[in-house]
Amino acid sequence: MAKGVKPRVKVPKTAAAGETITIKTLISHKMESGRRKDKDGNFIPRSIINRFVVDFNGQNVIDVTLEPAISTNPYFQFDAVVPDAGEFKFTWYDDDGSVYETSKKIKIA
């Protein structure tokens, strides 16, 4: 598991039914591209987050493929429609097989 990985998400606590809300996510990750060399001239192996998925009550919201050119600490901001109360589930997949998960509940006001 890569060091110092910490997912952070910002989701409003409440929303009106059918409202479009903005979700912000950030995961701290070094996103080593695999193209850099160390002091001895050897390539530093690639180690990135390669996939990011968000589900709402089991239904997929977004599914992103990340490439090596994406910079450190990838940040995603997107809009989602909230039909009713439930839970957003955020999942990041690391090259080394680790999976980082977090979730946020949202209520209908």
């Binding site: 950030l26 701290s28 940040y75």
Partner: peptide, 12 residues
């Protein structure tokens, strides 16, 4: 504070 990238380091 969420958009401020420095907070990744404040968390550390």
């Amino acid at each position: 504070d969420f958009d401020n990238p420095a907070f990744v380091f404040v968390d550390k």
